[in-house]
């Protein structure tokens, strides 16, 4: 059996989510090949070649692939799909965008956002905002799967795969890239951070997020938010944690001024330790928090920052 893993990257370095997908592929058994589709992404391919357990890396480059256009990724993956028993990609906005297209063209049902590999054809995936876990067995000849990165170990280095170049089919450009507006931050990425501190509607406005950012910078944490905080324009959309935003599972998740709606819990309840700071002692967030502090956040957060200084942060 052979599995194709499609790498997540920014044309410069390999995203950790790829290593989670490799681990899922290992659990299915068989040879693992990685496809790096991008533009000017040789360094990504070199990095992928070092991932333990990878037998081969393929590098395909074009302008459209550099921008992760779904239509271009679809035709590239289909052009090399022959011979693979499974095709995996991280369940990122890139994977979610093109993988269903690949599945439809292969006439197979996509298995979205798996959290466990039970065997080469049986997987677990969350449904209903994570309130139920469904075990599904696929009867399709090829398994097309997106992998939830937070629930798989990240495969380490130790491999020495060959890198070969494959040509990107010049599919009629159906769709054109116009522009991109990426949030600039020196903080770690939400999905990969060991500590995440998130603010909700209780923050009141965008300026007030500065008090969370100060704590984040001390701890090397990422900053996240509830949907309510994003909808209100306090912070950009890519901060949203939850069922329909990002799923995170850090060592420590600190929820500040967040009530704990099921849609928010879906995105963070697998964190190792959860802290909630909320002035309402009835807030549902306390039912999942390991440590709850009933307090006004405008008092508690600056105090938290001071206490951190005292222990050497």
């Amino acid at each position: 059996m052979a599995t194709l893993v499609i790498a997540e990257h920014d044309n410069k370095s390999l995203n950790e989510a790829t290593r989670a997908a490799v681990t899922a592929a290992k659990k299915m058994g068989g040879d693992i090949h990685i496809l790096v589709a991008g533009q000017g992404a040789k360094s990504v391919a070199d990095e992928a070649a070092k991932v333990e357990g990878v037998a081969k890396v393929m590098l395909a480059e074009s302008d459209a692939l550099g921008h992760k256009m779904a239509e271009a990724l679809e035709s590239l993956v289909l052009s090399i799909a022959e011979g693979y028993d499974a095709i995996l990609a991280p369940a990122s906005t890139v994977g979610k965008n093109f993988m269903p297209r690949v599945a439809a063209k292969l006439d197979v049902m996509l298995i979205s956002d798996i959290t466990s590999v039970e065997s080469a054809d049986t997987f677990i995936r969350p449904i209903y905002a994570g309130n139920a876990l469904m075990t599904v067995k696929s009867s399709d000849k090829v398994k097309v799967i997106t992998v939830r990165p937070t629930t798989f170990e990240k495969a380490g280095d130790g491999g020495s795969a060959s890198v070969e170049t494959v040509s990107a089919p010049d599919a009629a450009a159906k769709s054109a890239f116009v522009s991109e507006e990426l949030s600039k931050s020196d903080r770690p990425e939400l999905g990969a951070a060991k500590i995440v501190i998130s603010g909700g509607r209780g923050m009141g406005n965008g300026e007030n997020f500065a008090i969370l950012e100060k704590v984040a910078d001390k701890l090397g944490a990422a900053v996240g938010a509830s949907r309510a905080a994003v909808d209100a324009g306090f912070v950009p959309n890519d901060y949203q944690v939850g069922q329909t935003g990002k799923v995170v599972a850090p060592q420590l998740y600190i929820a500040v001024g967040i009530s704990g709606a099921i849609q928010h819990l879906a995105g963070m309840k697998d964190s190792k330790v959860i802290v909630a700071i909320n002035k309402d002692e009835e807030a549902p967030i306390f039912s999942v928090a390991d440590y709850g502090l009933v307090a006004d956040l405008f008092k508690a957060v600056p105090e938290f920052e001071e206490e951190l200084s005292k222990i050497g942060y």
Binding site: I111, V136, K269, E281, A295, E307
Partner: peptide, 22 residues
């Protein structure tokens, strides 16, 4: 194409403790 073998409850998270001070 997907046969549902089982639909299970996710592991329940135990609520923890309330702390008094920061």
């Amino acid at each position: 194409r997907l046969e549902v073998l089982k639909v299970a409850e996710p592991p329940k998270r135990q609520g923890g403790v309330k702390v008094e001070t920061v």
